[in-house]
Amino acid sequence: MSPRFEPTVGRYLHLDLLGRPHRLYVEEAGTGIPLLCLHTAGSDGRQYRGLLNDPRITANYRVIVFDMPWHGKSSPPAGWENEEYKLTSRDYVRMILEVSAALELDKPVVMGCSIGGRIVLHLAHEHPEKFRAIIGLESSPKVDPYYDVSWLHRPDVHGGEVSAGIVSGLVAPTAPEEGRWETLWHYMQSGPGVFKGDLHFYMIDGDISDRLDHIDARRCPLYLLTGEYDYSCTTEGTLEVARRTGAQATIMRDLGHFPMSENPEKFIGYLLPVLERIRSGNKKASAA
């Protein structure tokens, strides 16, 4: 194999986030409509490398992925050693808006998976005017706890290995081995207590069941894509969101909870028509 560089560019962004100085790692590739991508709990932006490297997407979209604070190559804020990381709906919404503003994005498309798929529902509810379209991957209004999350952060259990063990069954059994194990590797590298802290949003604070009926997909187009093998954010949960919001939902065959990293090629096949629809809607809006 001859050596080559990817078109992806990674940089560190210094900004005030949630009232504190942060250093965030941001990757991007492509030109056109900004597509801001949000990774899953306990993982990082590497999940989107398939999209960043696909010219069918980057020809028309500027794909931007940032590692949330505490995740990937983004450090926790100074003083982290004296606090317990716990993601809340309020902070998560603010973080996305502040990153988008810092990058001077003009009405981006926002796309998130799992916790990202949940927070985009909060964005659709609270800030639909700020986005060109919203894409929820593995979106559900809530997920009740089904295991004791304290196992994820204790000194006598390896946090990375147990986190990977917890999520391993969420990858579709039909996923290629390379995609499955790369997805799990990201979990194995998560910082101590970070996955658990994200699950505070996912399983407790981020429940949006009582506000779903106030989301109106006519105010901002809302698309939902969910893998048939996802037993965490279930297909039933996604279809409920679609029924109550007017979103367009697609159940993706042969995919699980991590479509963009477990099987990028298969996932992009489902994503391209959505991106094309957003682009054509955009053209119509410009012509009107």
Partner: peptide, 16 residues
């Protein structure tokens, strides 16, 4: 041999 969605993993059974 090919578990159907919802029966692919022990935690899927736990959740159910």
């Amino acid at each position: 041999e090919k578990p159907i969605p919802g029966f692919t993993d022990i935690f899927a059974l736990v959740k159910k």
